[in-house]
Design a protein around this nucleic acid. Structure first.
Lengths: 146, 146
DNA sequence: TGTATTGTCTACTTATTCAGTTGAGAATAG
DNA sequence: CTATTCTCAACTGAATAAGTAGACAATACA
């Protein structure tokens, strides 16, 4: 699961993408529109700013804007940035690869091939959609069946 | 990421699958072969037993065995059992669907469609491989690039 | 110059989850 | 009836997540 913080970051970035090229957007406005606790959002936006993916401006009429065109930011980028990896297990990560603790040797691992496949396919999907893409919302789920 | 407990559960189940039809396997043996803390494994196996996916037998020469043929257990089943869901966000889960906390209305959600696609594709892969399948291990990763 | 505004940063706090242990108990074989 | 093996509830300690507090820095504008 994505953490709450990652989800907030995604929504904040969508908000900035929707207002790209329109001058700085204030934190308070994002917080309200996206239903994110304002104080927590400061942590998140400062972090994104340190990552260099948003620019910030202080003082009157200050705020935040994307540092990069929304066409150049994928959902995969955002999740990797906030969470470190798209993979289900450390040994199946491609950018943050490390040995799974207490596991057998990687060469003997019975699931790594499958986990790599899942991570690759997930990356393909998440890197295929950009912040500039308008995604049609799917109707809310009614049934309760995963 | 999968929790350590989920990863232990998967390895324990693989061990039982490898010894399917050969009488009960003792916890201590699984723990040693799979490098899992024995006491923790009791918690895990008892849980799996309560789920009805393994049978246990107490007393001398007791142990555990799969309650179901390994051909009828997929990796997706195991992860869902231990983690509750394959999805990246609660609202994209199909079997454990619930609203994401502090989110916008589902009908307005900009990422749900994408998250549903990821979860469906992940499920397809994970439910396509069974405990009975012998997966060829992938050579250990050398480079560090996810 | 100075004051209101808006973001930055470090350091908490509090809640939750994870990982694992303890220890008493119950079934079974012999 | 005893040794073995699983069962179960409760507990602990560590890590992570989620969020808050509050002092500080930059900027605009008067």
């Amino acid at each position: 699961m994505l953490s709450q913080k990652t989800r907030y970051a995604i929504r904040a970035m969508q908000h900035l993408a929707d207002n790209y090229g329109q001058g700085p957007i204030q934190l308070a406005q994002i917080a309200e529109a996206q239903n994110i606790p304002a104080k927590f959002l400061t942590t998140i936006l400062s972090e994104l700013s340190r990552f260099g993916i948003v620019d910030s401006q202080r003082g009157k009429d200050g705020g935040y804007r994307l540092a990069v065109s929304p066409i150049d930011i994928t959902y995969g980028d955002l999740i990797r940035l906030m969470r470190g990896s798209l993979a289900l297990v450390p040994c199946a990560s491609r950018f943050a690869h490390e040995k799974c603790k207490n596991c057998l040797e990687e060469g003997d691992c019975r699931t790594r091939a499958l986990m790599l496949e899942v991570r690759d396919r997930t990356a393909e999907l998440l890197d295929g959609v950009r912040l500039s893409d308008r995604i049609d919302p799917v109707p809310a789920q009614v049934d309760d069946q995963d």
